[in-house]
Nucleic acid binder design. Structure first.
Lengths: 332, 332
DNA sequence: TGGGATATGCTCAAACAGAGTATAAGTGGT
DNA sequence: ACCACTTATACTCTGTTTGAGCATATCCCA
């Protein structure tokens, strides 16, 4: 039983996650659960994050438990993964901690400078090859899956479906670890995650598909891999975080005490991987009463000075945010 | 390492969850993880649900991993909980399975007949007593917590925060198992769940509070308890399910193949614990293209016959559902 | 045949989201 | 001191979505 933490911060406009050096290469910080000391899983995570890395973590939540017996060579490794948010700060320590740019791991997820080149350069062609040789029964399913996850065809790009996309790329052998796992005799189906998989093959059955033989491995893998299945875990974390942005004020946990509205917007944009309409964003934030001015100004913005704001922690209790009116019933 | 399943169905207008008889009393179906057979956690759950109960489960997703070493007497019991959806059907089996009315467990969650009596009868008075004797530092925090979770004061009732409410009731000793756990020397802080707790005590620190001494235990506990912490797990499941209703078409997994719009609405209302505006609900469903008419009519509705519809499974792939535009950024 | 019940269709206003225009107030160079 | 440039902030306009209610259709049953 292990614990794994995906610790996220934002450095200016760059979303980052913390990695450490491990015997298997760059990895997410992990630790075995100490049955004596860790009376709760949360305590275990705090020990892992605050203790060994000395990092003040401002928010965390349980992400997912990965239990595939094939996820690591040899042993069955059950890992409870946590998502954590921290303010950006310099790192040091025996484990060689490092703030990694999230979009080095997931280059296709950053749409802030427009549609990422890797999509049309590598991914879409690979998807087309994948769709080009279908068993007739599979074709519609595959087409739909490709369209929905990557927003080809009619569908839109949904910034939240990070994990779906990663898993499809894994199946297509477009990420290095797919090939690596296959060589190691692992690389079973990507089924085991977040309730995402089973949507494809109808009720219950996960894709059940194994990774493709090989012919798609001609290109160098996209993005930077991590040890074991840690990049998958990171994908699940980014998905969760993006989803959370929409209904809970979590961004503030990676922002300093006082910040400008532009800074706030940049952080949201960094995590969402999308640009937002500036004026409307401002209206939204103001309307929600999420922040209050500190009275200070930030000079040297390069233009007009910006007012500094702080998060109104009270809103954590105020927000009407009725979860299920007809209003929020977009999905059903 | 155990698996626990919260299997939900809807019987007419009654949401139900499956319980079995155990040595500790009525419990959720659980099983130890079989390291040999269960190469993935999902397989383990399928074995648990389909295998031992013979129930066709149409959807499931991992819910949460409960790892508090105090959650059961003696041993450390780590349990991965899954949420599962099934169509309602008669049960039988050696484990004495039974469809329990969800709102027997959580009477305060059903607002379909108006504000539940137990709120003003028991809960609000207890909250007021709780707020009446605060250490001065605690008062604002407690007030805010009470208001947000139970929608007293300014705040609205948020149908989704099922777990928050259960946990507060547990701390207030208003549910039987709180007292039971205390006697058994368990009943540590309720911290360990779903990222809900830490919202209260500011960054990181969970409430850290232990259950109250005793003076609140004068009333009989509210609702029907389950073994161990299973009612907490059920609360987490209901919360997840209510949240999911808003953005994923999961209701259809508990509905029969063909259904009327009224039946669909009744199921949503049953799970949400809220009544919805009929005409608008209809407009919403039609507008989302979620269903298509079968051409059949259902007679004997007591009034005009209703058209029968089926779920358009294709929408699982169509839905544009852009997750993060400014549009969906209500929470931030 | 008429009353009651449910299903279904349509209207209307308020709130909201997306996009654009205009103005304010700094910085840095000349 | 003045200029161009940059960023911040305010306001407008329009189409869409939501909440709520009214009206009509079509059955059952007494």
């Amino acid at each position: 039983m292990g614990l794994t933490a995906v610790i996220v911060s934002v450095d200016g406009t760059t979303p980052r996650l913390l990695t450490v050096a491990s015997q298997d290469g760059e990895a997410l910080p992990s630790a075995a659960l100490d049955d004596g000391a860790d009376t709760t899983l949360e305590k275990g995570v705090r020990r892992l994050v605050s203790g060994s890395l000395g990092l003040p973590v401002r928010y965390f939540e349980q992400l997912y438990t990965f239990g595939d017996s094939k996820r690591a060579p040899g042993r069955r490794a059950l890992a409870v993964a946590y998502l954590a948010l921290a303010r950006h700060q310099p790192l040091s320590g025996p484990a060689n901690p490092r703030w990694r740019d999230c979009y080095e791991l997931f280059p296709w997820e950053d749409w802030r400078q427009g549609r990422p080149a890797v999509l049309d350069g590598v991914i879409v062609p690979a998807l087309e090859r994948w769709l080009g040789r279908p068993s007739p029964a599979q074709l519609p399913t595959r087409t739909e899956r490709a369209e929905l996850t990557f927003g080809t065809g009619q569908a839109f790009w949904d910034p939240v479906r990070v994990l779906d996309r990663y898993e499809l790329l894994y199946e297509l052998m477009l990420v290095d670890e797919a090939d690596r796992d296959r060589r190691a005799g692992l690389g079973g189906p990507c089924t085991e995650v977040a309730g995402a998989a089973q949507a494809w093959a109808g009720p219950l059955g996960g894709p059940g598909g194994h990774v493709l033989p090989s012919p798609f491995a001609e290109v160098a893998g996209i993005g930077a891999p991590l040890a074991l299945d840690h990049r998958r875990i990171a994908a699940a974390a980014l998905e969760r975080l993006r989803g959370k942005l929409a209904y809970r004020p979590v961004v503030f946990e990676v922002l300093p005490e006082a910040f400008t509205l532009s800074a706030l917007q940049q952080v949201v944009e960094a995590l969402a991987g999308q640009v937002l309409h500036k004026q409307n964003f401002r209206r939204l934030v103001a309307g929600a009463n999420l922040v209050e001015p500190t009275g200070e100004l930030q000079q040297r913005t390069g233009g007009r000075p910006a007012e500094l704001y702080r998060f109104r922690r009270e809103v954590l209790r105020e927000r009407p945010a009725p979860g299920l009116g007809l209003r929020r019933l977009g999905g059903l």
